[in-house]
């Protein structure tokens, strides 16, 4: 680029002179926009420098938060463990003296459950149960002598083999009394 010399076209010189006479006033708002552009440029160019303090705070806060969360979770775990419901002890050794009253022995619980489960199939009435039930129901059990039944059978059915069988086992049945509901 060369500076316009004195041999310039007269029209060029005239126009240049006229344009130099343009009345322009200083606008301070332009400087504000330049400053804003500069600030944004600095932030983009050096993101670490611009937000060092805030970054430090954020890292610090994150660290504090994680540590406090860990401590809180441990404390909560401890507090829950000291509740009257007691700890859950999976130890199956019932004779362990260290187990206090509050501790729940899971093995014991399971044993109790087993007992309950075993008691459920006893829907088929046993003699003992029937006696107990009869007490509650105030019913007199029907006493049947089995020897009498067999004597009656012998009267009507006379089969040798059957008779032999009955003779052999009659001694067993004679003294037994079966209760039939």
């Amino acid at each position: 680029m060369n500076a316009p010399n004195s041999n310039r076209h007269p029209l060029d010189k005239y126009i240049d002179e006229k344009l130099e006479q343009l009345n322009i006033e200083f606008d301070p708002s332009g400087w504000q926009s330049v400053q804003n552009m500069m600030k944004s440029h600095v932030e983009i160019a050096n993101p670490n420098n611009s937000s060092t303090f805030s970054k430090f705070i954020s890292l610090k806060s994150i660290a504090i938060f994680t540590v406090s969360a860990l401590i809180l979770s441990l404390l909560m775990y401890q507090l829950i463990g000291e509740k009257p419901n007691g700890n859950i002890n999976t130890n199956q050794n019932k004779s362990n003296p260290s187990l206090d009253e509050n501790t729940i022995d899971s093995s014991n619980q399971y044993n109790k459950k087993d007992q309950k489960i075993n008691s459920v199939p006893s829907t088929i009435p046993t003699l003992k149960n029937k006696e107990i039930l009869s007490k509650f129901n105030n019913q007199v059990p029907l006493v049947v002598d089995s020897t009498q039944i067999f004597d009656d059978i012998e009267k009507y059915v006379k089969i040798d083999s059957f008779q032999d069988l009955i003779l052999k086992d009659s001694t067993k049945f004679k003294k037994k009394k079966h209760i039939i509901w």
């Binding site: 680029m1 500076a3 316009p4 076209h9 029209l11 060029d12 126009i15 240049d16 006229k18 344009l19």
Partner: peptide
């Protein structure tokens, strides 16, 4: 004068500005 200059075709005005006023 500025009005005249702005009413020139863009390339013509640019060439005039660069050659006659800036010395390119």
């Amino acid at each position: 004068i500025l009005f005249y200059l702005r009413h020139l075709p863009v390339t013509t005005a640019t060439v005039f500005n660069l050659f006659a006023l800036e010395g390119y």
